[in-house]
Design a protein around this nucleic acid. Structure first.
Lengths: 367, 367
DNA sequence: TTGTACGCGTTATCAA
DNA sequence: TTGATAACGCGTACAA
């Protein structure tokens, strides 16, 4: 092929393994072995083949290779929302690991409920990936089952799932850290801004973070006032509305813990527009350490985002290479309280029980 | 194949076109035609084939299909930084269009200079995509040439490039809008925060936005004070440093235009920490309408980000389907000034020339 | 409208 | 260590 004897410039297309074999004076089998670095090839032969391949600008045809080897060299990455900060961070980290490993990254963005249904319905990844990385999707057992029908290893970021290797953080504990911080500052009426009304990813994160909030309150012997636990919409606007609602209470909180930095920032906007100052009037603590947090000096709980993607990718690649391990591994990465200037001790309000009776000693920093 | 007569549950693997053909009682050619919706298939036959395929859970083998058809059904998307806001927005939009079109999205994240070199060096997309979408990379002519060696259509977002269909905005004009707004408010000393010291994407955006800044100044008859045009690093930190430098001037600006919202927000942080208020002491205007802009009430110039990705993807798909058009199309989408509360008329400073002599009448809103 | 048969470019199994 | 050759699963002229 591509052998137009003595002809001029023809549409020769990319050269094939046959061309390389001919040029190197060996069989295509030897070319294949040489190029893939398999043993049982004499050094001289290999050198000759490599040179011939280079001279011809030879590139293996992925299609042919996949067909013959029954491997795709591709990892499917499924994200709920490619456009949101968290997922783009994870995606970037995953991309780096996969590139390093020479794996193609096939991106599937669910985007919405319809997309999600379509995905689990038609399984567009069937026969085209060697492994699947799922980012922060709480899989129903039906979905998990369908996913296994792909017949390839999978791993998941962010949510513990039966049978799947998982990399995540401890949302309950992380949230508790945030609330403990406020408690230690002396706050007694601590609100929570949760996106409980929606959780399209079904990740369970909103629930876990509320659990952590309650846990810390309980530890501190503070009553859990349900009116302070606000369930609203996701994101800055959700946070803004939630904050507005809390401000409208007869006895508003002196501090709020937001499920995410995005919600926290929305809350800060509401406060600002209400003429209230952070942290003087209300302390605010977020979660994630979103890039925005540092910019608005928001105290928050940092989670290692990119690292979760990295670890998950590595886990998955291992499963792809060596088969799934017996007991699926679970990696829980640590969170850390980052104290900035959005949190401070409460001002003593005269209408409160007694001036600081039995209050914990405020501490400025802790972890 | 997969025909183990009377045998029990065997590892049967996915069923192939042959299985479907047998089950439907037709040839594989007919199956192929039916499944791909080609004409020249009788309705009854097609129905029978489709049912057989469904019953067998048949899915075309992409590898085999690609090998035979010489098409990959895949678009390669090249981004400089998958983790940055702008690119994740574009990526999300592109993903949606490609999914709709049934195209696979092969993501390549350059991440850094090394990644970029590797990409153009080894062209990892060779033989694996039907088209390439490049996001905001200013291609050197060498890179552009290499890209054409891929032998597939390409399109680019954000930067005008010879031979490539392109979707972008007018950065010069957009920036001019921002600065005109400040001029109209009555500002005379207007600083510019530019990331001029680095432009890893070589997109030319920093340059263009500076050009727009100068253009608007010139139009307004204001002198261009080079000390007010600050070239620094990218991002919030870059903006923060730049702002600090401008504040250290003997006669600091009353307003600044930042190359991006990210830089603007960094600048706002510097101002806040310096005890200055926005917009009372200094007006700030950004560019992009990054999600953060609305949160901090930043006046900015909105560019349609997702739309650029969408249009580019559509353009590319067209080229893939119908061959590249003679003259590569160029789509320039409009920008729009979004006035929020970070910009206001300057306070009259006594040490200035004369109180408002010859100042343009401040207008609160314009586009 | 349907079927036959070749080709797509590798990998992998044997035998040499 | 090397070479022939049979899969791999589908698309597609061409013939029927």
């Amino acid at each position: 092929m591509n052998s137009s004897p003595l002809s001029g410039p023809v549409m020769s297309g990319p050269s094939s393994i046959t061309d390389v074999a001919r040029r190197a004076g060996v069989s295509i089998a030897t070319v294949s072995r040489s190029l893939r670095g398999l043993p049982n090839v004499s050094p001289v032969t290999r050198t000759r083949v490599l040179r011939a391949a280079a001279e011809l600008d030879y590139v293996v045809s992925p299609a042919a290779s996949r067909l013959a080897s029954r491997r795709t060299g591709t990892i499917g990455v499924v994200v709920p929302f490619a456009r949101r900060w968290f997922f783009s961070q994870v995606l970037g980290a995953v991309a780096a690991v996969l590139r390093e490993a020479g794996m193609d990254l096939l991106l599937y963005d669910l985007a919405d409920r319809v997309g999600r249904e379509e995905f689990f319905d038609r399984l567009p990844l069937r026969r085209r990936v060697d492994g699947v990385l799922v980012i922060s999707l709480g899989l129903t057992s039906a979905e998990a089952k369908v996913l296994r029908e792909l017949g390839v290893p999978a791993a998941i970021v962010g949510v513990r799932t039966p049978w799947l290797p998982c990399v995540r953080i401890d949302d309950v504990e992380g949230s508790a850290k945030a609330v403990r911080h406020l408690v230690n500052l002396g706050h007694q009426r601590i609100g929570m801004l949760s996106s409980g009304l929606e959780d399209p990813t079904r990740s369970g994160t909103p629930t876990d973070r509320r659990t952590g909030y309650r846990k810390a309150l309980r530890e501190a012997g503070l009553a859990h006032d349900p009116t302070l636990e606000h369930l609203g919409a996701w994101g800055p606007d959700g946070g803004a509305e939630a904050m507005a609602d809390l401000l409208a209470l007869p006895d508003p909180p002196t501090a709020v813990f937001a499920e995410s930095d995005e919600m926290a920032v929305g809350a800060m906007r509401t406060l600002r527009r209400a003429g209230l100052r952070v942290p003087d009037d209300v302390s605010v603590v977020g979660f994630d350490d979103h890039e925005i947090a540092g910019l608005v000096d928001l105290t928050t709980v940092r989670q290692p985002v990119a690292e979760q993607g990295e670890h998950a990718a590595i886990l998955l690649l291992d499963a792809v290479a060596n088969g799934p391990s017996e007991v699926p591994s679970e990696i829980v990465l640590p969170t850390r309280l980052i104290v900035r200037s959005s949190s401070t001790p409460p001002r003593i309000r005269t209408r409160w029980p007694g001036p600081a009776e039995g209050l914990p000693t405020p501490r400025a920093h802790e972890r």
